[in-house]
């Protein structure tokens, strides 16, 4: 079987399987936002928006559009029953105080010991880090979804991030188009646990710069 990388949608489906009933979750802008479309039926997950909402609902219909109700990506949204609004200070107290169970974010680089860089490229216009540094420093489980390699083929899982960091030793799981890796806290290395259909451990090695461990039984990503 030829190597069949996961599509962006499949990456988010895999990420959604990390959700648990009752979790408070913050989804980053871009691909991670799509995880909301794949929350397993019957599971009650509370999505937090760092501009001050716990309990994001579906996008509004035309009649429901409200300029006072947006997500962190500035899109119009709705609030689900049971939602609450609060200030940015309260929102980041929730994030920095460890009251959010999981966040799912994109990344430009992740290092072999779990550093993450996802906010600036030196020499390019810097737009700012927004809430990313607070999320990676404060949330219990940081899941990164990203392409395994950049567009020019460069590995994104590296020994040491060459880009300025967003946070140190904070990534607990990596879901790419080629594989799933879980951080082994004791050994401070990611462990390869699942492969994309058709991918081999050697495929991952040849596309990865950072060291990683391989689980005894590597499965295929079920999506």
């Amino acid at each position: 079987m030829p190597l069949t990388p996961l599509t962006r949608d499949q990456i988010t489906i895999r990420a959604a399987r990390e959700l648990r009933d009752g979790y408070i979750v913050n989804l980053g802008i871009g691909m991670p936002t799509l995880v909301a479309n794949h929350i397993p039926k019957g599971m009650d997950v509370w999505l937090q928006s760092e501009n001050g909402l716990l309990g994001i609902g579906p996008f509004p219909n035309e009649a429901e559009v409200d300029a006072d109700l947006i997500n962190a990506g500035k899109q119009t949204i709705t609030a689900r029953p049971g939602a609450s609004f609060f200030s940015s200070a309260d929102s980041f107290a929730m994030i920095r105080g460890g009251h959010v169970d999981m966040c799912i974010l994109g990344a430009m680089q992740v290092s072999q010991d779990g550093d993450i860089a996802n906010w600036m490229i030196p020499g390019k216009m810097v737009k700012g880090m927004g809430g990313a540094m607070d999320l990676v420093a404060g949330v219990k489980r940081v899941v990164v979804t990203m392409e395994h390699n950049s567009k020019d083929g460069a590995p994104k899982l590296v020994r040491r991030c060459s880009l300025p960091l967003t946070g140190q030793r904070c990534v607990s799981m990596l879901i790419t188009d080629l594989c799933v890796m879980v951080m082994d806290e004791a050994r401070r290395r990611f462990v390869l646990t699942e492969l994309a259909p058709g991918a081999t451990v050697d495929d991952i090695r040849s596309r990865t710069e950072g060291e990683f461990l391989v689980a005894p039984n590597v499965g295929t990503v079920a999506v």
């Binding site: 760092e50 200070a89 980041f92 880090m129 990313a132 540094m133 960091l165």
Partner: peptide
């Protein structure tokens, strides 16, 4: 960082001149 900004403003208003936070450790911040 957005949370640092929010907390710096909250602290300023509450008469707190400075505070420690984990946000930004190891980063240019």
């Amino acid at each position: 960082p957005q949370g640092t900004l929010a907390e710096r403003i909250r602290a300023g208003g509450a008469g707190i001149p400075a505070f420690y936070t984990a946000t930004g450790v190891g980063s240019p911040v």
